[in-house]
Amino acid sequence: MPDLITHLSISYFLNKPLKIFRYSTLFYVGAVLPDIATRTVSIPYRPAEFAVYPLHTPLVIVLLCLLLSFFFAEAERKQVFVSLIAGSSLHLFLDLFQKHLQPGYTLLFPFSWRAFEFSLLWPETIVSMVPLWILIVGVMALLNRRRAAQAKGNRQ
């Protein structure tokens, strides 16, 4: 998995300028959800790794997002589900760019254990790019804030 800062940064790059999702907070939650659901268990308690493994696969993530959406008000449930699933899908897609000695992601679970990935970057290569992501996000946030202040000034 790329680190969560990379996941968050890329979801910010997509969401902020395009304003795709109304529930952007939930889009960001979705962007970290597959790792939160699995690594918070498997890193401290390794024997449970395969028990939580499905929570990092596409079909099960859809079910998990559907489950989570039922903990929100009925009127916004559909939007919550769409935002969570969009963030999670982006997460799973980005993970595919990583390289391992053997492919790590079983996209068709539970129907097949065949794993797949694009195998382009070692995980640590991605980690070393984190300062760059933080810099770009910082600059984008600053520009957005300045633009918002300008717009407010023009209205007044």
Binding site: D3, L4, I5, H7, L8, Y28, V29, V32, I43, V127
Partner: peptide, 12 residues
């Protein structure tokens, strides 16, 4: 990677 991911999770 674990430490920065933890920070990002707390942020979210």
């Amino acid at each position: 990677k674990i430490i920065i991911s933890l920070a990002a999770a707390v942020f979210v």
